[in-house]
């Protein structure tokens, strides 16, 4: 029971943070601080330089040291404030933020990137498009994969060959050129919402072939099991057999595939962004953030840039965790 509550809290909390990034993020995802590029995570203090304790945590000003590093300057102290209203640059509007420090102080709790943008805010804002698109794509790929794979396994014969040859075609083709061609036919500017559906659609539609083969393999043996044969003998319809007898046997496989596909699809966005099909700068997405990490110098010199990896781990682990819990509950109820 404790596990369940923990899972639910984690699940809901994570999704709130990702769906409403504006609540938690101290800055906008595209807000540049050109004088603070690649600043390491800002340290939050309770004790000041003189050793005095402050109930309200604070940060010190950070100053560039000249050799691409930063140091803290104890001369200025900026207390962390909660529920602050800050101005949004270049628009004249104000926005409520969960926490922040007064300008000119900066708080980068996960450090900053090549443009001096707050990585924490970018991870939060990036999650919305990436997680949603990866989930939708996973759902699409698994839906198509399950239906086609099960159909191939259950019906056999010509259906099987046709579907399997189609999946092989899907795996063999050089998608790269297809995607290039797709990009060439699309308009230059793609709105964020269109980007989202494009990502989900492209990844989902190209990603069904492997799950389909896996599921077909399992369905092949599943349909030969005694209770399936007897159900057929009793004249059960094919769809009934699929829903009541086959699908439950496929479920663990589908869950496992989902856990594998979600992070893979988040990373697929890296390639799509390269082709101009993903979210492009300055929009944040986990794919873009992971793409930054693929550079030697970022990996060795700016360790905080690995944060997006842990965001992806957190999300996919949460899904796995929840899936486990539900499965166990369903089983315990059944027994």
């Amino acid at each position: 029971m404790k596990r369940l509550y923990f899972g639910i809290v984690l699940f809901v909390g994570l999704h709130c943070a990702i769906l409403f990034p504006g609540l938690l993020a101290p800055y906008g995802p595209a807000e540049q601080n050109r004088e603070y590029t690649f600043a390491p995570p800002t340290r939050v203090h309770w004790f000041d330089a003189g050793g005095r304790f402050h109930l309200r945590p604070f940060v010190y000003a950070i100053v560039p040291t000249g050799d691409e590093g930063y140091s803290e300057s104890t001369s200025a102290r900026y207390p962390v404030r909660f529920f602050v209203s800050v101005a949004v640059p270049n628009s004249g509007q104000r926005k409520l933020r969960f926490f922040g420090v007064d300008a000119p102080g900066r708080i980068f709790i996960l450090g900053s990137d090549a443009y001096g943008r707050d990585l924490f805010s970018r991870v939060l804002y990036g999650g919305r498009i990436s997680v949603a698109a990866a989930l939708l794509a996973t759902f699409l790929a698994l839906l198509i994969g399950t239906l086609l794979g099960a159909a191939a396994g259950l019906r056999g014969g010509l259906t099987d060959s046709a579907i399997m040859r189609l999946s092989e075609l899907g795996m063999a083709l050089s998608w790269f050129y297809l995607l290039l061609a797709v990009r060439a036919f699309l308009p230059l500017r793609i709105a964020p919402l269109e980007t989202f559906f494009l990502l989900a659609g492209v990844i989902g539609v190209t990603g069904w072939a492997r799950p389909a083969r896996l599921i077909r393999g399992l369905a092949l043996s599943a349909k030969e099991r005694g209770f399936v044969m007897s159900a057929r003998g009793f004249g059960a319809s094919e769809f009934y057999i699929f829903r009541r007898h086959i699908l439950p046997q496929l479920k663990p496989l589908i869950f496992t595939q989902a856990v594998i596909l979600i992070p893979q699809f988040i990373m697929a966005e890296v390639t799509l962004s390269f082709l101009g099909l993903g979210a492009s700068e300055p929009v944040a997405s986990w794919g873009n953030l992971l793409a930054d990490l693929q550079q030697y110098r970022i990996l060795v010199a700016y360790w905080w840039m690995v944060a997006p990896v842990f965001a992806v781990v957190l999300v996919s682990s949460t899904y796995f965790f929840m899936a486990n819990i539900f499965e166990r509950r369903v089983q315990s109820v059944a027994i």
């Binding site: 540049q32 270049n90 443009y115 500017r189 082709l275 492009s280 700068e281 300055p282």
Partner: peptide, 24 residues
């Protein structure tokens, strides 16, 4: 391109950065 987009946004111009594969 990203820096210019930010520079020009200060003039009220909206710039979309569209990175494409080089030959495209």
């Amino acid at each position: 391109a990203t820096l210019i987009a930010d520079d020009l946004s200060q003039l009220g111009i909206t710039v979309h950065v569209v990175p494409l594969e080089f030959r495209a």
